[in-house]
Every structure is written in C-alpha cells, then in structure tokens.
Write a protein that binds this DNA or RNA. Sequence first.
DNA 1: CGGTATCCGTTGCGATACTG
DNA 2: CAGTATCGCAACGGATACCG
Lengths: 132, 132
Amino acid sequence: MVTKAENQELRLKKNIKKYFLQAQPMLENGVCPTKALFAASMDKWSMFCVFNLGYFKVLRFTELKNKIPGISARMLSVSLKKLEQNGIVARKVFAEVPPKVEYTLTPFGKGLAEKLADLGNWFLAHYPNKDS
Amino acid sequence: MVTKAENQELRLKKNIKKYFLQAQPMLENGVCPTKALFAASMDKWSMFCVFNLGYFKVLRFTELKNKIPGISARMLSVSLKKLEQNGIVARKVFAEVPPKVEYTLTPFGKGLAEKLADLGNWFLAHYPNKDS
DNA sequence: CGGTATCCGTTGCGATACTG
DNA sequence: CAGTATCGCAACGGATACCG
C-alpha cells in the first residue's frame, strides 16, 4: 500500500526530475534556467510590480510607485526595465505633455503572476512564523 | 459570454486579492510576507539546495556541494543555515569520527519544493529566450 | 568531514539632485 | 509626469586559510 505522503514525495521527485531533465541541455549551452528565472523576475520589487499589475491590470509609473510602499523611483525604474526586457511587462508611451506611460503584464507576465501568486498564497498559508 | 482569457484574468485577480488581504494584517504588524518569503528561501543557491534535497531526499554536506556546481562551501553553509532557521531543511548530526551530517527537507520544505518545482517547470515551458 | 574566519572586490540600492 | 545621473554606504559572495 502507498500512503498519501509517499505519493506526494513521488510526485515531487518526478516534477524535480522533469525540471532537471529539461534544464540539462540548456546547461550544456551555458544557460542556467534557474539563474535566468532569478535574473528575470525573482526579487521582491519585481514581485510587487507583477502583483500590482496583475491586480490593477494597467498602471502608470507614479501609480505603481504609490502602490509599492518603500520603493524608490530608481528601483522601480530598474525593475520595470528588467521586466520589460524579459517579456513580462509591456510599456506603452503616449505622446503627450505631460508625458504618460502605462504598464501592463504581457501574457507571459500574467502566467508568471499566476504562479507567483500561487506560491505567495501557499507560503502565507503554511509559513510557521506567521505570528513572530 | 466570458472568454477563456477573461476567466484567467479574473482568477488571477482573485488570487492576488487573496494574497493582499491575507498580507494586510501582517503588514500592520510590521511583517511583510513577500519579504519573509525572499528572506527565507528565494535565492538561487537555496533553490538548488531545495531541489536537490527534494530529489535525493537525504544528502550530506559534501554530496550536496558536489551536486551544485559553482557553489562555495561558505555559501552552502550560509544557505543551509538560513533554510534550517526557517524550518525548510532539517539537519541531523551523527556523533562519529569523521563527522557525519545529513540534510533533509522538512514537511514545510517539501511543500515549498513542490511550489518551486512547479514554478521552475512553468518557466522552462514558457520562457521565450530559451534558445538565446 | 563539515564546516568557520577573514579578507576584499563587486553589486545592490537608497538619497539626492536634475531633466525633457 | 516619468524618469536619469551620480554618490556613497551596506550587503553579497568568492578565495583562501584554518579548525574540531
């Protein structure tokens, strides 16, 4: 008989194996997908940007800045540029005075947002030090 | 009529809203769950540790080091300590000479590994710059 | 074997000032 | 409004040496 916990472990092993197998040929080409993932989007400011754009759909620079307490204009600028370069965020400039720029998630960005929200919710539900 | 894409967007918004709502009371207590998540486990070395422990179940320090190309003893030590403090990794010391230490994932760590493997696999499947 | 201590160059990032 | 430029400190992290 196979217990529930054993099933879970087997599924985990299988999923990680899948990741390892897919990553292998990329590693041989000098590209590490894990590093790429982190380089593209895995820092806290990027995560805040992705969450807010996932929720509000379209935001301007200053709106986004106001929704992310503690972020500086510099880091917001840097994060958005990185996200744009990696195809996660789309930037739309309007030829107006004063200037107007709108940020949205690309389809790829929306998929990523889904996965990150999933991770965040799981973490919130299981984090043992919630009260500390 | 509601299209598939619209449904996806609604689900995304709902999931992020759930995260925001859960996070709100923690933020008022001065704890940011997103920062906690990153502080606990979101760097590339920690991710490699979690993946390898998820796959091989139990590994010793040097085994883990050998399975993670490029990691230094210092960073492996630092990462494992952080993961242990955050309840993700369990450390078992054997009173032997020469010393023997085994690392495994805690149940919390296994859950996290599942989510990270899921994220990694999604990223591998959709990353647009796979070939670059 | 399984680490720790120290050094030190590199990077991250906030603050401030400035611009089309 | 939507950024950029520069500065300066702090943290990251690799190399090396050492230890119980």
